[in-house]
Design a protein around this nucleic acid. Structure first.
Lengths: 335, 335
DNA sequence: TAGCCCTGTCGAAGCGCTTCGACTCGCTGA
DNA sequence: TCAGCGAGTCGAAGCGCTTCGACAGGGCTA
């Protein structure tokens, strides 16, 4: 491995000069800079990450805690993770992938060992165990998601309350008066995952305002679960004409089951989905939907974290405004 | 931050003794060990990762290069990534997430900076640009996937040739003589991604042996693409009674379209899928399938890499044997 | 022309850890 | 009885980098 000292010798300057060329923290004459850069090129020098971290006490690594549960909402998670990784690179950071398995201990470990300069947490619960630790530590952190108490924390998320409201507004505007909400798996609500509960809150609030009756049912993905959930819904509320679905893996089963039951979309029932753009546009009926801006969330969270690390950051909650795209799964309520 | 020296002082021993307690590389008396461990506890000591990496020239980090393309078989990737991360932790390693964006340069950067002790590469192409660099470097590496020339490399993958063969064997055994293969998106073949091509090879070889006619068509996921692909297939081969699908996002569209055309599964046509277990069992028809053992692949790749790092490793190709699970989407060919 | 500041460079002191002798015991075996 | 050994501990020398203070020289201002 080539070292700084070797580069310095090759270029005929001192080690500190090479360091300053690299960091730009002191002015260097053009001729010296060029000579050093040439030596770096020729020798194929790469600064040693460990030494750099030790000397500067900054590792240029951002830790990303993803949920362990592979059952849940996986494509969105992956999209966020990749957006985080690529955005981080453009700011000179690498990303350390932590799974939820370690739990809150991971926060302690990473902060204690100075392995990462900052952390981004996904899958935030309303009363997340990791938050107290996060507040204690001096490490920069950003949540993707919104806990019950966001005080002193920086959060990035889709505005799920507004999302829920938007869906209801759209259906109400089309004359629907009985709406069913197909939610995430029950476990998601049991963990009090922020986004799921907030969506339902937004739906209920707007429904009350608009005079719409709402029935909310959690649902595991897949056919069997969806079939059961659907038949219960129609038992309880035969007059249901609108659906809001917030579970990717329930979307296609729902559409198929409605079809099998002879209910036409959107003539008999309307469906609004809260899901990634791709799912909505590639479903068997092109879905009216509110997109989950996974990439944007990943990108913004990194930008927030980098701002904090460079001292420009503030603690604030950034909620991305939802956008509803009308496609072919919603129409006027039947008479 | 608490340092080794502080722990040493607190416990009344020298720094090196604390270090040996931590690493276990020299024998330590029970009483000293306990005293040191107590101090570590009380002070909440965590070794500084950078200092450790610098002194020992091992970072205890494994780099994982995932493909950038978010469009492509994403859930499998995520599952592998999570399996890699959790398995790595059980061996004392953390995982650095690299996207394909940087390309081969990432290999150079990581190796040069000693940021990671080893690398795991996903989404391997038959003639992958990263391989020459990998062979040059002394870093341990494992591929998830199989390039054309695996000489001197360690690879872990599902045996996709055997997978293809297994699918054909199953259909042939049921009397099917005209089989269509719905493949991955054309771009996947253009990049000469190992697994996609190997599957087709395996299919063709076994088909020839079994006297089965095969028509292979790449297919983007989603309804529009699948509809077009399907109509072309029946135009060209009206007698097609068997399908092999290797594209998660084509599965559900295919089933729906067949249904719409009045072709019953499995009475009129049989469908075998190559996809994650979950997709197969939750589809609208429970699918006969060969599972993609994502977790297993992630786990094995880490174990291989750890073996290499501890000197027990060998260069070898480990192909996981495919298993076909018969469910409700395949049956005897119609007369 | 003296004094000052600015630019560009260097030397040296760490950062916190690992690891290699080296040293001290108390034992064992000849 | 004493060399020799293993167990247990310590001190010191780095690992490769960043960064601080110092300093030389040139161009200003006064």
């Amino acid at each position: 491995m080539v070292t700084l000292a070797e580069v310095a010798q090759h270029a005929g300057v001192s080690a500190s000069t090479v360091s300053y060329v690299l960091s730009g923290k002191r002015s260097i004459s053009v001729s010296t800079r060029e000579r050093v850069e040439l030596s770096i090129q020729q020798l194929g020098y790469h600064p040693n990450a460990g030494a750099r971290a030790l000397a500067s006490s900054r590792s240029n690594i951002i830790a990303l805690m993803v949920p362990l549960r592979t059952d849940m909402y996986v494509p969105v998670m992956m999209e966020i993770a990749i957006a985080v990784a690529t955005t981080a690179r453009t700011h000179g950071y690498d990303v350390l992938l932590l799974t939820g398995e370690e739990g809150p201990a991971a926060v302690r470990r990473i902060a204690g060992s100075s392995l990462a300069d900052a952390m981004i947490l996904m899958d935030v619960e309303l009363h997340d165990e990791r938050l107290p630790l996060l507040r204690e530590t001096d490490r920069a952190a950003v949540l993707i998601g919104l806990p019950a108490d966001a005080d002193g924390l920086t959060c990035v998320d889709l505005d799920f309350e507004a999302t829920g409201a938007l869906c209801v507004e759209h259906l109400a505007g089309l004359g629907h008066r009985e709406v069913a909400v197909i939610g995430e798996a029950a476990a998601v609500y049991e963990r009090h995952t922020g986004f799921a509960e907030r969506t339902v809150d937004g739906i209920r609030a707007k429904a009350q305002e608009a005079g719409v009756r709402v029935l909310h049912r959690p649902c595991e993905g897949g056919y069997p679960a969806m079939a059961q959930t659907l038949s219960r819904i129609f038992d309880e509320r035969p007059g249901t004409t609108g659906f809001i679905v917030q579970n990717e893996s329930a979307v296609e089963p729902l559409l198929n089951l409605l079809r099998q039951q002879g209910r036409a979309v959107p003539e008999d029932v309307s469906v609004v989905a809260i899901c990634p753009e791709q799912v909505a546009s590639q479903a068997s009926v092109r879905l009216t939907s509110v997109a989950i801006p996974a990439q944007e969330m990943g990108r913004r969270s990194v930008e927030q974290v980098v701002a904090k690390l460079t001292g420009r950051g503030t603690d604030e909650v950034e909620l991305l405004a939802p956008e509803l795209t009308v496609r072919e799964s919603t129409g006027p309520a039947p008479r």
